[in-house]
């Protein structure tokens, strides 16, 4: 018998009596204002929420805030002209010099300000992690209250890879002192687009 068969037969022999799944695994969160909740949590975890009316305002914010960054990748069609060079690279290692990545998130979660970013949105899986700074765009209409609603909306195996991203990368491993900017992005702005 190989290990696979040994493990499976041991599990079969030793497992407890069958227990059905609980009836309730989805709970409701009643936040009166999803944008306000999302923004409050994002600030709490070190990100910056920015509410804008349209892509022009989004562009103005990005230009003003990140004017000193030389290498910019933009994966948002409406903001493609913000990219400083053609970044259609084959080898993801080439993205190591990216200062700013601009990516459109699919939807956001108010309770924890997490944003679903599947690999298709970044072109390369590593892009939202390897860039020094990250801007995620999100339509305010694409906010859900909590993680139960998120998985209700999401088909997780549709993409080969996808991540919920909540805030900039961080660590508190040294004496519990919070340091923003561990291995992933050093900062995160979430540009919330109204009326879209």
């Amino acid at each position: 018998m190989n290990s696979r068969e040994r493990i499976l037969s041991a599990v079969k022999q030793n497992k407890p009596e069958f227990q059905p799944l609980p009836e309730t695994t989805r709970f409701q969160s009643d936040y009166p204002d999803l944008v306000a909740k999302f923004s409050e949590i994002l600030r709490f975890i070190g990100g910056t929420p920015v509410l804008v009316a349209n892509y022009e305002e989004a562009e103005t914010y990005i230009r003003q805030t990140y004017s000193d960054l030389p290498s910019v990748v933009s994966k948002v069609p409406a903001l493609s002209h913000l990219a400083t060079t053609d970044w259609d690279v084959v080898d993801p290692h080439q993205l190591e010099t990216v200062d700013l990545a601009i990516i459109q998130g699919v939807f956001g979660v108010a309770e924890n300000s997490a944003i679903w970013v599947p690999e298709e949105r970044g072109g390369h899986r590593v892009l939202p992690f390897i860039c020094q700074h990250l801007v995620l765009l999100l339509n305010t209409a694409d906010l859900v209250p909590n993680m139960h609603d998120a998985y209700e909306r999401l088909n997780i195996s549709e993409s080969g890879f996808g991540a919920f991203i909540a805030g900039p990368s961080k660590t508190a491993d040294i004496e519990q002192a919070l340091v923003i900017g561990a291995h992933g992005a050093r900062s995160l702005s979430v540009v919330l687009l109204q009326n879209s």
Partner: peptide
């Protein structure tokens, strides 16, 4: 997959008091 909703709500809050970890990566 829907059970991730339950566990990701429980995990980081219990661990460090964060509402969720910065990255929840689905491979």
């Amino acid at each position: 997959a829907q059970h991730l909703g339950v566990f990701l709500r429980l995990l980081a809050r219990s661990a460090t008091g964060q509402p969720i970890t910065t990255y929840s990566s689905h491979f």
